[in-house]
Design a binder for these strands. Structure first.
Ligand SMILES: [Mn+2]
Ligand SMILES: [Mn+2]
Ligand SMILES: [Zn+2]
Ligand SMILES: [Zn+2]
Lengths: 137, 137
DNA sequence: TTAATAATAGTAACGATTACCAATATTAAT
DNA sequence: ATTAATATTGGTAATCGTTACTATTATTAA
């Protein structure tokens, strides 16, 4: 009835490569990377394994609105900021997400609060410089 | 060079219907609704107009991770909570989004903070009751 | 009216993700 | 090592929300 996961070469390499990267790659970015070591791997396998690994808590899946999913091999508690210009996601080390008057705010809704996500959106230094360069007005 | 928007029957009806609805419909939900008044309208027209209306600030576009876009005809400043079970989005009237130690947190990143989104995720009363009913264990 | 051109309906294309399936690799037991 | 059970794979097709295309129509200002 139950099914034990098997540590395949593909799963191993995907996990290793993701942990090596400091960035937060999309599935196909990671796919390209992994192909360096396993040229015959398929994109579907990458998706499948990322899903499994995220499900078992070995990696983090980051899904932000309006962009494809990204993955994080760093389980250390940290926040992220996303660049609205290029989509890059950077780590923010620091205090865990704060909580406050949320209870009061939600009191009337009848909802059972499961998660409170704080999403930071900004412009990364590179894009900022670029925008300042191409100023039209 | 410049282009002035035209108030077509379709745009008018889409805006009216969205403003009437208290829910936060997806494009195709709104499409079904609008077809009651304009049977020959196409889904593409609904998408196109929602985009235009959102761009000009006449409606709000809500894009949450992992689900299709939703739209809000209510411009009054308010927050939302989304049910992770059924996807429904409900209004939360109350204080505007708080801000605090964010500056400090972001100081080291070099990013220019554009927006700080607080997303509430929970279980709506209906889904909560349903889950309590279908308990397996 | 007229002319200029947004906007439309219908449909095809897109891109990220998932589903399918016969072949293969991993695991645990022999 | 051999085996048997089955999780996983590679390759590909399908899905689904959304966007792009295009000939035709409707809106606007003159
Ligand atoms: Mn990270
Ligand atoms: Mn709302
Ligand atoms: Zn950037
Ligand atoms: Zn619900």
């Amino acid at each position: 009835m139950e099914s034990r996961p098997r540590m395949t070469k593909q799963r191993q390499v995907i996990l290793e490569e993701l942990r090596m990267m400091r960035s937060h790659p999309t599935a196909d970015e990671l796919y390209e990377r992994v192909r360096g070591r396993l040229p015959r791997i398929s994109l579907g396998t990458v998706y499948r394994n990322l899903e499994k690994l995220a499900g078992s808590g070995m990696i983090r899946k980051l899904d932000y609105p309006g962009s494809q999913m990204r993955f994080d091999g760093d389980l250390h508690g940290h926040q992220h900021i996303r660049c609205i210009s290029c989509g890059r996601i950077e780590d923010i080390d620091g205090a865990p997400e704060p909580t406050r008057c949320d209870r009061e705010l939600l009191a009337g809704s009848g909802y059972r609060l499961v998660e409170r996500r704080v999403e930071y959106v900004g412009i990364c230094p590179e894009c900022d410089a670029m925008e300042k360069g191409n100023q039209k007005s």
